[in-house]
């Protein structure tokens, strides 16, 4: 029909933003998802943070402050890695991807939509966790711009690398029902070896630190500690410093590796079906 050919197809970015709107509506209306990926890290922070009350020797910082700063890192990994890993496994199973594949939507717009979802959910997660950490554990919001700049790049690199890993991991789960279990296993295990649950990280056996250092969580949490804790606390890190250069390098490497993994593993439909 000439009418169809005469009108241009909607742009990839505009469609991506439209997808983002639909994704956000669905995410925040699904109570399980909101409770599980959104409220759980904040709840863990409130509960565990209240257990560790002591000051770290030689500093005026409490373990709960250090834990809170680290836990914000775990929070945005929940809203990026878990949201996408579980969400895309669901999209594959409930017919979302198959239906979209039958429309003129470009694949890039689908991913832009997911990116919008993760960016908004992760920013909201940080706000929620700070709303718990500031009154409960006296976490001080930085006042100088350079710390907020550090926050911004750690946040952006952390969210992008873990989103890409989530997209790649979505293909690992055999079904949408098993996806939360399959993805939580590495996530929870990494929280133990990355200096989130057990602090300071220098108190962990060296093989654990080595294992944790291979993955993004350790570096995101370390980055957030450097934002929310005084510089004297850098001595408590595994390397005895904040290692900003290495944080950026590892997270960038995971962005590249994640992108490659996505390109290899992403499928519109479940190959096992039909």
């Amino acid at each position: 029909m000439t009418t169809t050919e005469a009108r241009p197809l909607p742009g990839t970015l505009a469609l991506g933003l439209a997808r983002g709107g639909a994704e956000l509506r669905q995410f925040f209306r699904a109570k399980e998802a909101v409770l599980f990926t959104f409220a759980l890290p904040a709840l863990l922070m409130a509960l565990l943070g209240s257990v560790f009350g002591d000051e770290i020797p030689g500093t005026d910082v409490t373990t709960s402050q250090m834990f809170a700063a680290s836990m914000i890192g775990a929070g945005i990994i929940s809203t990026s890695f878990l949201t996408l890993g579980v969400g895309i496994a669901q999209d594959r199973e409930d017919g979302t991807l198959k239906r979209l594949h039958g429309t003129p939507l470009p694949a890039a717009s689908y991913f832009i939509g997911k990116l919008v979802l993760v960016a908004v959910a992760s920013a909201a997660e940080v706000v929620l966790m700070l709303a718990v950490a500031v009154p409960l554990f006296d976490v001080r919001l930085p006042t100088d711009a350079s710390r907020w700049l550090t926050f911004a790049w750690v946040f952006v690199l952390g969210v992008i690398s873990c989103s890409l890993l989530g997209i790649a991991a979505s293909s690992l789960a055999r079904s949408a029902r098993s996806a939360p279990a399959v993805l939580n296993l590495p996530y929870v295990a990494l929280q133990f070896v990355s200096g989130v649950f057990i602090l300071p990280i220098s108190s962990l056996p060296s093989w654990m630190v080595t294992t944790g250092s291979l993955f993004p969580l350790k570096w995101v949490s370390q980055g957030f500690r450097s934002v929310f804790l005084p510089d004297t606390l850098a001595l408590q890190e595994a390397a005895g410093s904040w290692e900003h250069g290495r944080i950026a390098l590892v997270l960038l490497a995971w962005c590249v590796a994640g992108l490659a993994l996505c390109a290899v593993t992403f499928r519109w439909t479940d190959r096992r079906a039909g």
């Binding site: 009418t3 169809t4 009108r7 241009p8 197809l9 909607p10 469609l15 439209a18 709107g21 639909a22 509506r25 669905q26 209306r29 699904a30 999209d91 409930d94 017919g95 979302t96 198959k98 239906r99 429309t103 003129p104 939507l105």
Partner: peptide
């Protein structure tokens, strides 16, 4: 298919309408 269960009928139809040129 049982996708987009959280969207209303009108929201879904409006959203899919945006994907097409005409």
């Amino acid at each position: 298919t049982h996708d987009a269960g959280e969207l209303t009928v009108a929201e879904s139809v409006r959203h899919f309408a945006r994907l097409y040129p005409n």
